Each structure stands twice: as structure tokens, then as C-alpha cells.
Simulated assay, not measured.
Amino acid sequence: MRVLLLGAKGRMGQAIAAAAAKAEVEITAGLDLGDDIAKQIQDCDVVIDFSHPNASSELSRACGKAKKPAVIGTTGHSEEERAAIEDLARSVPVVLSPNFSVGVNALFWLTRKAAEMLGDGFDLEITEIHHRLKKDAPSGTAKKLAEILCEVRQLDYGKNVRHGREGLIGERPANEIGVHSIRGGDVVGDHTVTFSGAGERLELSHKAASRETFALGALRAARWIVGKPPGLYSMEDVLGL
């Protein structure tokens, strides 16, 4: 498999390059924000993008024109950037995921099942911790967890998700989903979903110790997506969850 890697100088880009070498995957070129994707894209089977949300438009144009599938792990997209990715998926297969760890995708599945089983009698909170250099907050994984909870509870993300609390805020609304971001040190990524009920509390947690787990998941997604029909896929599709 031949991979064009975007975001090659970043932490995830370096982790993917290292994992690719062990897996005998060829990185045809390693590009970063501002490099010309179109000049390099013809030599690859699939594009893996861990660069920057600003690259979404150029990535979409290049992949669409060359008919190359894409695996996108970049987070923090605006509505316009997300729309460009969705438009690309109408012509080529795209895996878009905030997290390529098998364990985190198990957390997504478990969160959905727990929310369905526990019902409306439990308060929902999400906490995520990342290294001090992470640029976006909350993490894409935390947003995905909140989206899952909103879907199960039939809530509106914009109205019911609350990012942090401060001051005299009054009682907690029953349909509120709290999301809290902590930044510091070199933490790779911790995520916890807390279900708090009367007399009991359930916590579902995932803690990443190495970026290698994300890199291996991205390469797994890249192998899976080649040859698939156009569409917007998730890592849960890759894993068959």
C-alpha cells in the first residue's frame, strides 16, 4: 500500500511514518500545510491526513480530482470545512474519525450502550485531558462522545452541551451534558464519560499511553478504505462495530 501523508512533521505524522516502516507500508511523500498536494497525489493509493483543518478544501479538491480515497484524522473542522469533506465523500470513499484507536472506538460503542441502558435518570459528563501543545478544545473524541449521548437522549448539541462551568450557575439542568478540557504536560489523551445517578456512578474511561495505537488504527483504516465505494465512513465501520 502506498500512502501520501499530510501533516508529516506533526506528532501523529511522525508516529504514522514510524508505524508504516514496521508494517512495510510505503510513504510516497510526507507533506505539510502549504505544500502542493496535487503534485504528489498520483503516486499513492490512499491519502492519510493529520495536518490542519485549513487544509480540508485543498485536500478535497486534490482527492476528488485524482479519485483517491482519504483517511482524515484532523480535528477542529469548521462547518464549512466539514461540508467540504462531506462533498468529497460523494465522489470517493473517506474515513473521517476523531480517533483511530481501537480502544477509543470501543469506548464510543460502550458509551452508546450505557446511555441506552441507563436512560434519562443519570447526569452525563465528559472529561478529556491532553498535552499542553494541543490546539483545539474540546478534543474531537470528546465531541464525538457528546454527539453519541445527544443522539441517544435525543438532545440538541448546540443547546444541551455545556463547556465548563463558572459562577453562580444554579441547579444542573436534567438534559445538560457537561464537557471539560484539561491541558498539561505530555498527556497523549485521556477520556472519561461519567454517568451519575441516585446513589451510584458509572465511569467509562480510556487512557492512551502512546500515539502508536492511533497510527496503527489509521493504517488499518487506509487498508480498509481502498476499493470501497464512495461514502463517508467512520472507524466504527472499519472495525465492524
Rank of each mutant, 00 (worst) to 15 (best):
L6N: 06
A8Y: 03
A8E: 05
A8R: 15
K9D: 15
G13F: 01
G13W: 03
I16F: 01
A23Y: 09
A23P: 14
V25K: 03
E26I: 03
I27T: 14
T28C: 05
A29V: 13
G30W: 08
L33Y: 15
D36Y: 02
I41G: 04
D43C: 08
D45T: 09
V46S: 06
V46R: 00
V47W: 05
I48H: 10
D49Y: 03
D49Q: 12
F50C: 10
F50M: 13
S51H: 14
P53R: 06
N54G: 10
S56D: 10
S60A: 15
S60I: 11
C63G: 09
C63I: 10
C63T: 09
V71R: 12
I72R: 02
I72D: 02
T75R: 10
E80S: 08
A83E: 13
A84D: 11
E86F: 04
A89K: 14
V92M: 08
P93A: 00
V94K: 07
V95S: 06
L96I: 10
S97P: 07
P98C: 01
P98S: 06
N99K: 00
N99W: 00
F100T: 12
V104G: 03
L107D: 01
F108N: 05
F108P: 00
F108D: 03
A114G: 14
M117Y: 07
M117F: 11
L118F: 12
G119Q: 04
D120I: 09
G121E: 07
D123R: 06
E125L: 11
E128H: 15
E128A: 09
H131I: 09
L133D: 10
L133S: 08
K134C: 05
S139E: 13
T141G: 09
A142K: 01
K143G: 00
L149N: 02
V152P: 07
V152G: 02
D156F: 01
N160E: 02
N160H: 15
R165V: 10
R165D: 06
E171F: 04
A174Y: 09
N175K: 08
I177K: 00
G178H: 14
V179L: 04
I182D: 06
I182T: 08
V187E: 15
V188A: 07
G189F: 08
H191S: 10
V193Q: 02
V193P: 07
V193H: 00
F195Q: 01
F195A: 13
S196V: 08
G197S: 11
G199Q: 12
L202N: 10
H206W: 11
K207L: 13
K207I: 11
A208K: 12
S210C: 11
T213G: 00
T213H: 10
F214N: 01
F214L: 15
F214C: 01
G217C: 03
L219Y: 06
A221S: 15
A222V: 12
A222F: 08
W224H: 13
I225H: 07
I225L: 15
L232V: 06
S234A: 07
S234Y: 08
M235A: 06
M235L: 06
E236I: 03
